[in-house]
Structures are given as structure tokens and as C-alpha cells.
Nucleic acid binder design. Structure first.
Lengths: 340, 340
DNA sequence: CTTTCCGGGACTTTTTTTGTCCCTGTAAGA
DNA sequence: TCTTACAGGGACAAAAAAAGTCCCGGAAAG
């Protein structure tokens, strides 16, 4: 197989290029459908005219459907895209990144999508799609899935796919409020994911920034107590990884905590924990729900994060070696590999 | 692998076409090197200008070398071509023909080259090349190879490759004169093959059309007797298959034999034996050397024949099921398959 | 009912491909 | 030694394909 590609490279050097272009177009259509030429060409950075040519071609191949409301993938196009996925990973060298990272980080699985999620929202969506697919691959009947917050998880939620045959899956937020905006809160995302997956969900309504006393009293509430128990029984946790400073700024972080994070030289953040380069916890947001020490009991801990800006954060978090699966993008993967 | 090709067909429909074109050009250069643009374009049926473009491309890819004396394959080009061979067989569906024929004809091996040797001398050469390669694949040290005559075998001789590491291989003609012209006689071809292979050879000098008495006396000659013994010890026989009528006409066939062939409804011929549709021998040219009944003792009986015109002859001969390997071309293979 | 996208038609410009003609150099045969 | 045939390649025009530009009618959403 590799030799075929090598031979083809020799015999048709621009084959790869063209193939990749069309693959990306199909991929983008899948992510944005139904979508028009203009917005698509904007997103892909291709001139509209040239995209039009490609679109016409794809239409002739019966890979896309053209509506007055926009373009959609046909069944055939969707199938083709699926079967193309692993080949393109090979072709683009993503398979190499995946296997190497998997070994070096001692993970069960690494998924790398092509591109840079810092620069293209589509790549972030694609990462979300890959993560959604990954969740489904590991999810079984009657299981609880804990979901964290953040913009990346929002992308996962947006791209979530139905549970299909899986029965009785419950989605819960991993932890209480962390000071995020509503759209990035674990609660919001959890609900959205569950809806898209056609699964059940329960939310954790606790105020942000609890005082010690309030914290201790709230965890005694029967309803909360019950839910916290469920959260700790989760078989799967899905969370993002953020740059420490960015996260601290985005959230309504109290001054003294901010100083603590700064002094501790935190570089990464995940579900309320701030890590320094060595992976040591320098600060944790005080809230209910899943705690770091619970992670070792969870079968699948899926971390999702991409973009060159997050490479350091990912690396720091990986030093904790609590995650079992990493979903990332090309630039982050390369950056990670460069540093290891 | 097949799915990759399928996907590529969808995404780049003219990929196959272009790839095949360039593959054929490379293949033809290999067969004709050193060769100029004009003769090459004539042979390929491509306009000279278009070939020129391709040639330039291939040069830029370092696949061919351009000399004042003509174009040659570079090492890289030759390697590429070799590794491309099996892929193209897959792509062009020749693998399917090979495996199907192999089963239906109960052979050890079937090799199908692309094209029609009736219409293109290059295809005949390619068949010769494939046969030469095949011979080498099965040949071992200290073995005797018996070689028949005919135009196809002449092509094999022309494309013969050196023995390489194989030691002490002896080439001998399979049978005595069959009435052919010099260039198609087993003796001539045997010598040529041996020379090209850098092997030894011995020739069988007996007149055509022997009378019974002459036949019986000649086989008592010590030198002849010795050689005949060697011929019968051959581990490999390489022969062509001809259309009965064509062969009878080409050779100086006596009237009564001609009638016999005609009345027996012979359709095929191989090393002096004429077969009817059922594979029954209706006439044999009286001469010394290998006889039909000796074939079952030979490890590798390689039959080489191509072109739609010979499909019936091949089929007839295959009913004898004495051959172990068939080297043919695409049209003959398809025709054979259609009839089976 | 208006606004906003949607696809697609039409035309020009640009680039690439292909056809045509001719030149110079080399190698083999006379 | 000279001729001849065939090698590759340069140059340029014609043709075709691709890309840029502008604009239109129609469906859907607000």
C-alpha cells in the first residue's frame, strides 16, 4: 500500500495534492452541511471560482447533492469520506504522528486530525467529530459519561453523533462551575452532547466559587450527593486541556488564585486543575464533582486539545499520565513530538 | 488496497488513465531502449508532441535518461516499473484474469500481460519479457531447458535476461526441424536464448522431413543419441502455441499431411503436434527430440501464446493439460475466459 | 415582504496543452 | 571520411481548458 502511494507520487506528483484538496472539500462539506459556495470557499481559503469547478466535479461523481439551500454529502460521498479517512491519514503522515505519540506518551490511543485548530474553526470541529466518534467507539450500554467544559468540548458537543444501539447511557458534568461563560460550562455542554447523542443527562447546579462552609453543606444535599456518586461511577471522562493563563483570564478567577497560578508557573489546565511544566498541580478550583485522584478509576479518560498554542499545556498534563486517549490536531502533535 | 484504488477512481477519475499511459510509456521504453521519440510515439499510437510532454515529465522525475542516442530507463525508472507491475495488473484487472484462468485450466501459474500481441509487436515483446522472467523464476542450477521454435519464442529469445547466479544451465532445442524458416527454428532460438542468458547450448542438426529409414538411422548416431538423452532430461520446456492452419501453411508441410490436418479439424499446434478442439492429436510432425508423452516428466512446461487469433488454439492445447504455466496476453485471456 | 444566501449562466482573461516546423548533434554505415 | 538517418530540443501559433469577474433568478428565513 505504501509502495503504491510512493509509485503514484512518482508517476503523478500532483495526485496527492489534488486528492487532498478534494478530500478537504468533502470533509468541510460534511462539517458545514448544508453549505453554500461562498462560505465554503471562505473557510477553505480557495477562490470561489476554483471551488465551483471542484463542486461541479464532485456533483458529477455523485458525491455531493446540490440543493437550493446548500450542498450536502450524498450517501456515497459520506461513505467515500469514511473510507478515505485512514488512507489520508497515511498519506498525510498522520498515522505516523499517532503511533509515535501513542508510544511516547504511553496512551491507549491517539487520534490526530489534519490542520491547525488555532487558525481554522473547521479543524476544531473536525477534532470534535473525531472525538465524538472515539467516544462512541469506546462507549457501552448502561455507562455514565462525565463531560468537562471549555470551547473544545463545545465543538465536541456540536459534532456529537447519536448513540445508535447503545442503551441507557447517562451524560453528567464532570465538575461544578469553574467560572466559565454559560456556553462553555460543563452543564451546558453536557446537555447538548446528551441531546445530540439522544441520551439522558443530569446537571449539577452548584454556584461558582464556594466558600469552605458552603461547599461542605452543599455536598450534603441528598440530590447533589446522589449525583456526585453517579459522577464518580463514570466509565468515561471527556475533557479539554487549556493554556493556564488563558483559562485563568477567561474565568472569573479571584486575584489570590491568579497569583498562585502565576507563581506556580502553571502552563496547563484541565477541568479546574492547573499544572506546571512537570505536570504537578499548582492550583485546583474548589468545586464539587470529579477530582484528579478519581481519574485512575476511570476506564477511558479522553483528552481533547489542539493547536500549537496548547502543545505545552498538553505536554504538562500528559506528565500526570492520567489520560488514556488523546485527540489532537496536526500542529499540536508535531509540536509535542518536537519537544519529546 | 483495492478500496484505495476505488476511492481514487472516484476522486480522480483520470488518474488511472494517466497512470496507465505513463506506465505504458515506461514499459515501451524498457522494451525498445534506447529509443527515440518518433519511433516510440509510432509504436504507442500517441502523437509525438504529447509524447514529448510525457517524456519531459518522466525526465524531470528522473525515471528516464535522455541520450543523443535515445531514451533509456534509469535505475530508478526500472525499479519503479518493476514495483508498478503488480499494481497495474491489479488496476487493469489482469490479476483477476490470471487467477481465474489458473483455476479453470488447472495450471500452476498464469501470467497475463496487457494488450493484444496480434496488433502490437510490443505486446509480443512484453510477453517474451514476462516469459523470460518466468523462466528465471523457476530455473535452478545444473538444469536443462528445452526450447521450441516459432515467432513467439523468437520474442522470448529477444527479451531473454542473463542467468545471474544460476550455474551450469544448458539450453537445447526441444525437437528437430519442423519446416520453419531459419529465424523461427528451435535451433536458432535456442542459441539466441542461451547467448542472451549467458548459458551454454547444444544444437540438434537433423534435416526436416525424414523418411522412416533415415529417422531410424539418424537416431543411432552417437552424437545425436547423446543429445536426445539430454533433451529428455530437461526440467523445463518452453514452447509456443500456434493456430493449426497458419502453422501448416507457414511450414513446408507436405500435401498429404496438410490434408490430414485439415480433415482432423486441427485448431492448434505446439512443437510439431496438431490438436483438434478437444485437444486430441490429429497429426504429429515426424522428427527427433521431445515427444508429447515426455512432457509429463517435465517439471515446468511453459506455454507462451497471445492474441485473440490464438485463443482457440490455446484452449485446444490446454485440454491436453500438459502445460504447467501459461504466459499469454489480455485479449487471449479474455477470449479464453469467455469460452470456458 | 424584504433580505440573504443559494446555484448557475455568461463572458473575458490567463494559463496550459497541443500541433507544426525546423535546427543541431551524434552514430553508424557507405 | 562523408553521408544519412535518427536523436533531442527550441520556437511559436493555435486550441483548449481553467480561472476570474459580474450578474441573475429563486428559495428560505426573518
Amino acid at each position: 500500500m505504501q509502495s503504491l502511494i510512493e509509485a503514484q507520487k512518482k508517476l503523478l506528483p500532483d495526485l496527492l495534492q489534488t486528492m487532498q484538496k478534494r478530500y478537504q472539500i468533502l470533509q468541510s462539506i460534511r462539517l458545514m452541511q448544508p453549505v453554500g459556495r461562498r462560505s465554503l470557499s471562505n473557510n477553505l481559503g480557495i477562490s470561489e471560482r476554483i471551488l465551483r469547478g471542484e463542486v461541479q466535479f464532485l456533483k458529477e461523481q455523485n458525491l455531493i447533492h446540490i440543493h437550493p439551500s446548500g450542498m450536502t454529502l450524498t450517501k456515497e460521498g459520506d461513505d467515500l469520506l469514511s473510507s478515505l479517512e485512514e488512507m489520508m491519514k497515511d498519506v498525510l503522515g498522520l498515522t505516523f504522528l499517532e503511533t509515535t505519540l501513542k508510544e511516547k506518551l504511553h496512551l491507549d490511543e491517539v487520534i490526530v486530525v489534519s490542520g491547525d485548530s488555532d487558525h481554522s474553526p473547521l479543524v476544531k470541529k473536525e477534532m470534535g467529530r473525531a472525538c465524538a466518534q472515539c467516544i462512541m467507539n469506546h462507549l457501552q450500554d448502561d455507562e455514565v459519561v462525565a463531560v468537562a467544559g471549555g470551547t473544545t468540548l463545545a465543538a465536541v458537543a456540536e459534532m456529537m453523533i447519536p448513540l445508535g444501539h447503545r442503551r441507557n447511557v447517562l451524560f453528567v458534568p464532570a465538575r461544578g462551575g469553574l467560572g466559565e461563560n454559560v456556553e462553555n460550562q460543563a452543564n451546558t455542554i453536557c446537555a447538548k452532547i446528551a441531546e445530540r447523542a439522544h441520551g439522558k443527562y443530569r446537571l449539577l447546579h452548584v454556584p461558582d466559587q464556594l466558600s469552605k462552609e458552603a461547599y461542605e453543606s452543599i455536598i450534603e444535599e441528598p440530590e447533589i450527593k446522589d449525583l456526585l456518586k453517579i459522577i464518580r461511577s463514570a466509565k468515561m471522562l471527556v475533557h479539554g486541556i487549556g493554556d493556564a493563563q488563558t483559562m485563568a483570564e477567561r474565568r472569573k478567577t479571584p486575584k489570590e488564585d491568579f497569583e498562585k497560578i502565576k507563581k506556580g508557573k502553571a502552563v496547563g489546565e484541565a477541568f479546574g486543575y492547573y499544572f506546571n511544566q512537570k505536570g504537578e498541580v499548582v492550583h485546583k478550583v474548589q468545586t464539587v464533582g470529579m477530582q484528579l485522584e478519581d481519574l485512575k478509576n476511570i476506564r477511558n479518560v479522553i483528552a481533547v486539545a489542539g493547536g500549537a498554542s496548547k502543545a505545552k499545556a498538553i505536554k504538562a498534563y500528559m506528565n500526570q499520565s492520567l489520560a488514556t486517549i488523546l485527540v489532537t490536531d496536526e500542529v499540536a502533535a508535531k509540536e509535542l513530538l518536537r519537544e519529546l
